[in-house]
Design a binder for these strands. Structure first.
Length: 358
DNA sequence: GACTAGTGTCGAC
DNA sequence: TTACGGTCGACACTAGTC
């Protein structure tokens, strides 16, 4: 089973301010460059009717909603959404044999045991879960029930908002066939384009494409994944989430620049931030990287492995700065956004969680 | 050929 | 007419080493 909260951030705002329910709402990430520079994180359905959607520049969303003087453009409040999410997740957890947290607004549940693999009972359980979230938190969600993770994910997205879609094993081919390939998680704009050049638009088309051709086009793993997805096959089990593999910070600069004097303090601040997160989780890192988004929004990255895992802020700063200086030697356009990342994580000796031994 | 490191791309939310 | 966030994961590709 896959549970997905509808237009989550905007719904959180509606819950705490019910008068917003009938009005277009866009929850925005402002870049700090002043004015309306930034992007929409989530829009409610009233706003979507006018074309506003997540990922869209705020200025463009405002233009789409120019005709609605009751439209609200709110700044994201991640702390609040985190609280709502935690409360909702603790309710959902009670409905699962195994619960897997995916992000603030979605989760997978294995309910095979408690339903005896009966889809009628699973469907009933999903409805109970929806009712519980609705009555206890006024939260609406969409749920997909199917034989595996992939199909459940596609199914939860099939009918939104407030949807419940059940795909029984014998219905898989009929359900999947007519769907556009874009509905498959992992297929974005680029992959869609490349498959279109092979005459593939729907899942049924994808099913007809040879696995060797897919592997030739996308590599071994991705090719195999697409081949299986077309048949609705996925054997990945639902499992309690594993720990993170990286920590990163990325921020938009107040102006584009290639001046190390201007960039250095920003880099240092992000290093301190990333370092703080790693320390809080008692992990050491061995890989340090920087991320540069240029004026034209294209990206560059530089990374380096340290000699040994560390938790030293000085070492992190020194390495990040060296990477930045290196990158600047060949940097032709201005830098718009700058980021720092640490990866190749290991737990601090003696502080690891006992569960990690199993 | 197996492995590691580094870079870049794509995608989800 | 243009416009544009932040965090994370997966993996392809290439080069170097053994």
């Amino acid at each position: 089973m896959h549970v997905d909260f509808d237009y989550f951030y905007a719904q959180c705002e509606e819950i705490r301010r019910p008068e917003l329910r009938t009005r277009p709402v866009c929850v925005c990430v402002y870049s700090g460059r002043g004015g309306d520079s930034g992007a929409v994180a989530t829009a409610n359905y009233a706003a979507r009717e006018y074309g506003a959607k997540s990922g869209m520049p705020i200025t463009l969303a405002k233009r789409s909603l120019a005709g609605r003087d009751d439209a609200e453009f709110l700044r994201v409040d991640f702390g609040h959404y985190e609280e709502v999410s935690a409360a909702a997740m603790s309710i959902i957890r009670g409905f699962a044999d195994t619960f897997e947290y995916v992000g603030r607004d979605e989760a997978y549940l294995d309910v095979t045991g408690r339903t005896g693999a009966d889809f009628g009972r699973a469907s009933h359980l999903a409805q109970q879960l929806k009712n519980a979230l609705r009555s206890r938190m006024q939260l609406s969600c969409s749920v997909g029930v199917s034989p595996n993770r992939l199909l459940s994910k596609i199914a939860s997205d099939y009918k939104k908002p407030d949807g419940l879609t059940v795909v029984r094993p014998r219905e898989v081919e009929k359900f999947l066939g007519p769907l556009p390939i874009r509905d498959v998680p992992g297929i974005g704009g680029r992959t869609e384009e490349r498959l279109a050049s092979e005459g593939v638009a729907t899942m049924e088309d994808l099913r007809r494409l040879d696995i060797f051709r897919l592997q030739q086009m996308f590599g071994r793993k991705t090719g195999t994944y697409l081949h299986n997805a077309a048949k609705g096959e996925d054997e990945t089990p639902v499992s309690e989430s594993s720990s993170r593999a990286q920590y990163s910070r990325l921020s938009t600069l107040s102006r584009d620049s290639t001046d190390i004097g201007f960039l250095r303090p920003h880099l240092a601040e992000m290093c301190r931030d990333v370092h703080g997160s790693a320390v809080a989780d008692s992990v050491m890192f061995r890989s340090v990287g920087i991320h540069i988004i240029q004026s034209d929004l294209s990206a560059r990255t530089r990374s380096r492995m340290l000699r040994a895992p560390t938790q030293s802020l000085t070492e992190l700063e020194r390495c990040a700065e060296a990477l930045l200086e290196e990158a600047l030697e060949t940097q032709e356009s201005g830098i718009r956004r700058l980021g720092v990342r640490v990866a190749d994580l290991s737990e601090m000796a003696g502080q690891s969680d006992i569960t990690s031994y199993f």
